[in-house]
């Protein structure tokens, strides 16, 4: 095991981190700003993957599939916010957990009815299907590099929106003190709708990007959901910056955990979470609880 081996593993870890960030950023927005524990977040990931499969099959082009599929996913997100979740903002977290768990079941059943229970995959566009040779035995798929690049663009775009725009200001304000935002006369229901739609869109987009890498299958969102919650908790609830560094940390820790401590690779990320919480209970970039 030479240096190049560890360098490639670090690359693997960062790349995995980018994918995690895409899902976790939406989750942390919804959790941090709206105070909603959205267990159905993984379902949007699954919906994204199935839309990518379905539309790529129909249009013959992944890019076209994503362009058509993303608005559909966001509309589904907005509808869920308007007709289900908005009734529970003033209620206890337990109600939200029950509701969003119910949504998981509904989404899973709809998927089974609409698309069946067979396993599918999404074909890569030709220009992204190649590989870059790294060592004499190993090469790196171009598509993985492409996914990382897209994630960087999205992370930067989110940073710009949140730091430089009026909407971003409201989002930041909402994350730190929701009641004050409401008192100041900002239309909180509109803000919530935007945040939830964006969160659902991000998760669905992650599913679409991951679809050609992964298989498209029933229940695929559930594993992603748990890891995303770990990322959000480590990074600090509501912090996009936290989600980014949390995702990187988990991606790299999980990758090296798999290689260096294979027997314990399943628990590495949870041990890491426990350590971070002992040190900073509010997460790396979280606001101190009042």
């Amino acid at each position: 095991m030479d240096t190049s081996f560890y360098l490639i593993q670090a690359l693997n870890g960062v790349q995995y981190g980018f994918l995690l960030f895409l899902v976790a950023s939406g989750l942390t927005l919804i959790f941090g700003i709206m105070g909603v524990i959205n267990l159905a977040h993984g379902s949007f990931y699954m919906i994204g993957a199935y839309l990518a499969y379905w539309l790529t099959d129909a249009t013959g082009n992944l890019l076209l599939g994503i362009l058509i599929g993303l608005p559909i996913a966001i509309l589904v997100g907005l509808a869920i916010e308007r007709f289900a979740i908005s009734f529970l903002y003033t209620r206890d977290h337990l109600y939200q957990v029950l509701l969003t768990y119910g949504l998981i079941l509904i989404f899973n059943e709809s998927q089974s009815i609409l698309w069946g229970n067979d396993l599918h995959s999404v074909a890569l566009p030709d220009m992204l299907a190649g590989s870059i040779p790294l060592t004499d035995t190993l090469s790196y798929p171009v598509y993985r590099v492409f996914v990382s690049a897209v994630c960087v663009v999205i992370a930067l775009a989110m940073l710009l929106v949140i730091q430089k725009t009026r909407l971003g200001m409201m989002i930041r304000a909402g994350a730190s003190n929701r009641d004050m935002v409401q008192i100041l006369g900002i239309d909180i229901s509109r803000l919530f709708a935007i945040v939830f739609g964006a969160g659902a869109g991000l998760a669905a987009f992650a599913g679409m990007m991951a679809a050609p890498l992964d298989a498209v299958y029933p229940g695929m969102g559930e594993g992603v959901l748990i890891t995303s919650f770990v990322v959000v908790v480590i990074g600090g609830v509501g912090s996009i910056k936290g989600a980014f560094f949390g995702a990187m940390l988990i991606g790299v820790a999980d990758t090296f955990g798999s290689v260096l401590a294979p027997g314990f690779s399943g628990i590495v990320i949870y041990a890491l979470m426990a350590l971070v919480l002992l040190w900073r209970p509010q997460g790396l970039f979280g606001q101190q609880a009042p």
């Binding site: 095991m1 030479d2 081996f5 490639i8 593993q9 693997n12 870890g13 790349q15 995995y16 060592t135 035995t137 190993l138 993985r144 992964d214 298989a215 594993g223 999980d254 990758t255 090296f256 798999s258 290689v259 399943g266």
Partner: peptide
């Protein structure tokens, strides 16, 4: 199980 992130292991196999 049932994780499907294999990249780290594939790198190991290659080496």
């Amino acid at each position: 199980f049932p994780k499907v992130e294999f990249q780290a292991y594939l790198t190991e196999i290659a080496s």
